[in-house]
């Protein structure tokens, strides 16, 4: 619990610093680069677009952490590494806070920069292999 709070605090601090007129905030980047398909609430479009709700579950499985960066919407976006790391961290807490493990280490720019060099050419099969088929029921 304390660790989650600490992570959130560090994270929120990062957000506040970002909001002070420098790099684009995660919320802004989400709207401009993700919301068009993933919607304001991170919900699925059944049969077409997977949900962001529940993405925290990937953090609990081997290979899940890289997966969240290697999906094409993330790896091929024009958001620079540091903002992208912030964006993924923000997104996890925004849409899947309950699933984020207690010992979650926020993504760093270096890590994101590394994973995004290998965009996935196969997403569905890999996803199912990691956490099974996704539940398309809107929450």
């Amino acid at each position: 619990m304390v660790r989650i709070a600490l992570a959130l605090l560090t994270f929120a601090f990062g957000l506040a610093a970002a909001g002070a007129g420098s790099a684009a905030s995660p919320r802004f980047n989400y709207i401009l680069h993700c919301q068009g398909c993933h919607l304001a609430d991170g919900g699925a479009t059944p049969g077409k677009i997977p949900p962001l709700i529940g993405t925290g579950r990937f953090l609990a499985v081997e290979g899940g952490r890289e997966f969240l960066v290697r999906v094409p919407g993330v790896s091929l976006s024009i958001v620079p590494d540091d903002e992208l790391a912030e964006l993924i961290n923000w997104m996890l807490f925004r849409f899947s806070a309950d699933d984020v493990p207690a010992d979650f280490e926020p993504y760093t720019a270096e890590e994101v920069g590394r994973y995004r060099q290998e965009p996935l050419v196969e997403v569905e099969t890999v996803r199912v292999g990691l956490i099974g088929p996704y539940d398309e029921t809107p929450e």
């Binding site: 999906v71 094409p72 919407g73 790896s75 091929l76 965009p119 996935l120 050419v121 196969e122 997403v123 569905e124």
Partner: peptide, 24 residues
Amino acid sequence: STPGCSLVFSGGDLRYLMICANGD
């Protein structure tokens, strides 16, 4: 499935070419 890549062009006898969002 061809995540992140679009359009389809003939690329050989048993091949297609596609253009990806980052220019790949």
